[in-house]
């Protein structure tokens, strides 16, 4: 019900739009004529084999790299994007709370504001008890949650995730996927989620773009309909499994 209500409030105006976007590194074409529209509040999955340019697509969307050709419209506010990488990428010389505070320091917020926001996300992600610990004293799951907290602490409009759960075990992955999904619903985030894991993408995303192997091109797009469905039941539903099989078939056919 919450999902349905929130989804109805989400806009269907293009928030980010790519029109025939290609990216080349010297003579190597990594992405070829990619066109996609991302609406505000959508959670988009990018699925594809290794080397299909998924991570490159995220760096283009974040503005860290420039496109080689085509048109990219990004209507998100500058500085309101956040990145979560495969590794937690925490600074080992800083405590957990100092790590989470770093984007706010860059954005030049006051000490008090930083403290309030950091504490808020430490509590949301169940890390408050460990705020004074250094990353090396924490488990992989905690570090990844800290990395997600660091991404969310600036209240971003867009969250870009590059295989954030790849190094975690199955149970932890599912728990973090659930946590991310809850935050996504609460915060009206726009998410772009790069992954190899079909089930994760089907659970988390509203729409999935499937990419071919090198050079990366869109070979399929799947709209996921999970409205009116309890998310716990959804993971074990026929719709969920059928969607996974459908995506797997597209990926397998693209490899032949």
């Amino acid at each position: 019900m919450l999902y349905q209500t929130l989804l109805n409030t989400r806009s269907h105006v293009d928030f980010i739009k790519l029109d025939n976007v290609s990216k080349m590194f010297q003579n190597l074409t990594v992405l070829k004529k990619v066109s996609m529209e991302i609406h505000k509040g959508e959670f988009i999955g990018i699925l594809g084999p290794s080397g299909c340019g998924k991570s490159t697509l995220l760096t283009l969307l974040s503005g860290l790299e420039k496109i080689s050709s085509g048109v990219l419209h990004n209507n998100s506010t500058k500085g309101k994007s956040a990145f979560v990488f495969q590794d937690s990428c925490l600074m080992p010389w800083k405590t957990l709370e100092q790590n989470i505070a770093i984007p706010l320091e860059i954005l030049n917020l006051s000490r008090q504001e930083i403290e309030e926001k950091v504490n808020k996300y430490l509590k949301i992600l169940d890390l408050y008890k460990f705020r004074k610990n250094y990353p090396r004293e924490l488990s992989g799951g905690m570090k990844m949650r800290a990395s997600i907290a660091r991404a969310l602490v600036t209240d971003p409009e867009v969250i870009l995730m590059d295989e954030p759960f790849a190094s975690l075990d199955q149970i932890l992955r599912e728990r973090l996927v659930d946590e991310i999904y809850e935050i996504y619903l609460r915060k009206n985030l726009t998410g772009i989620f790069v992954t190899h894991n079909i089930a994760e993408a089907v659970f988390l995303c509203n729409r999935i773009y499937i990419f071919s192997f090198h050079p990366g091109q869109i070979i399929g797009q799947i709209q996921i309909n999970k409205s009116n469905m309890d998310m716990k039941k959804y993971r074990n539903s026929d719709v969920f499994h059928q969607t996974c099989v459908k995506i797997r078939t597209i990926l397998e056919n693209s490899n032949e």
Binding site: L64, K78, C89, I102, I106
Partner: peptide, 19 residues
């Protein structure tokens, strides 16, 4: 990846050097 995180929030070169 850390460099990317600092750059995405628009950190200055001096800030990046220091922190």
């Amino acid at each position: 990846s850390l460099i990317k995180i600092f750059r995405i929030y628009g950190a200055s070169q001096t800030f990046m050097l220091k922190k």
